[in-house]
Design a protein around this nucleic acid. Structure first.
Lengths: 156, 156
DNA sequence: AAATATATGTTGCATTTACAACAATATTAT
DNA sequence: ATAATATTGTTGTAAATGCAACATATATTT
């Protein structure tokens, strides 16, 4: 028997399982943010959180971290800036002019406010699986993601 | 020390890791499908695969499986039908008129053709992590996904 | 029987996202 | 020095997606 003739269904693949789970998580997040009347989107929240732990990061580097293209990263930042949650300023990186940014006091308060609001809800969800199991899954995914990043032309 | 005061960053959460990994996988898939000049999208392929193992499924049930809304599921099916990969026919389910579908001979050939084309490439990617590790991750995600599906109003 | 509710699929529109082209500047090559 | 290339961010447009409204038919309730 040639085992290569046994084709696995895509719908049984890890790729598919990841996408489906991620899609549901995104739905849950969106519904939660609306229900709790949080004034920014999940993506904006993720960007704000990333900025909070990467003070002085430039737009393109942020884009790489949140895996969005430069155009949309810029648009997200416009929103966050217009709400006063971040400041943007021109600076240099490798002798090039770039737009760096940092979280404001207001943004920091907002971030903590959101964290407190959603903590309980998200825990209720992730508590369905033991924490140590998550830790393992997370480390596998992280290792895998690093591999992926090396293979893919993210074009950011 | 109140451990509740220690707030985990969203970007360290399993939610975030899942989304980022899934996003990269999607990019990879898209780039691969274009490089190999496969004439349908990943989403259409996923739908075709799902139909192939769920003969006679109706649109809404398919939408639930591929986690897309009814509108977009219908659009995907239009494409697959126009290419002759599936047939759609009116039937009843619980005494209601529904559009059921099945894969055609041509669609089945196309599915196998695509599977053969991508197999090697996808294996090269997933081989970065041992197979038994994937099996564990997959079973965790599947269990989690079932929980999620019960909590979320997918509105499909 | 009539009214109300539910299930299914489609259509239209708004939002989101992806992608390519551009502008401005700096680096490297010729 | 000049030209070609690379980096960064923005703008415009097309494609994908989500969502609400609709149409149709059936179930359920009154």
């Amino acid at each position: 028997m040639d085992k290569d003739t046994k084709l696995e269904h895509y719908t049984d693949s890890i790729h598919y399982e990841l996408e489906q789970t991620s899609r549901l998580m995104k739905m849950l997040g969106k519904q939660l943010f609306e229900k709790l009347e949080i004034g920014i989107t999940m993506d904006e929240y993720a960007a704000l959180d990333t900025i909070s732990i990467n003070a002085g990061i430039c737009q393109r580097d942020l884009a790489k971290l949140i895996i969005k293209d430069r155009a949309n990263t810029g648009r997200i930042l416009e929103v966050l800036e217009s709400k006063g949650f971040i400041t943007r300023f021109i600076d240099t990186k490798n002798n090039r002019l770039v737009k760096k940014m940092g979280i404001t006091e207001k943004g920091y308060k907002e971030l903590n406010f959101i964290n407190k609001k959603i903590k309980h809800y998200f825990e209720n969800v992730t508590n369905k699986i033991p924490k140590e199991t998550w830790t393992k899954v997370q480390s596998v995914l992280k290792a895998f993601r690093i591999e992926l990043e090396q293979m893919i032309d993210t074009n950011i």
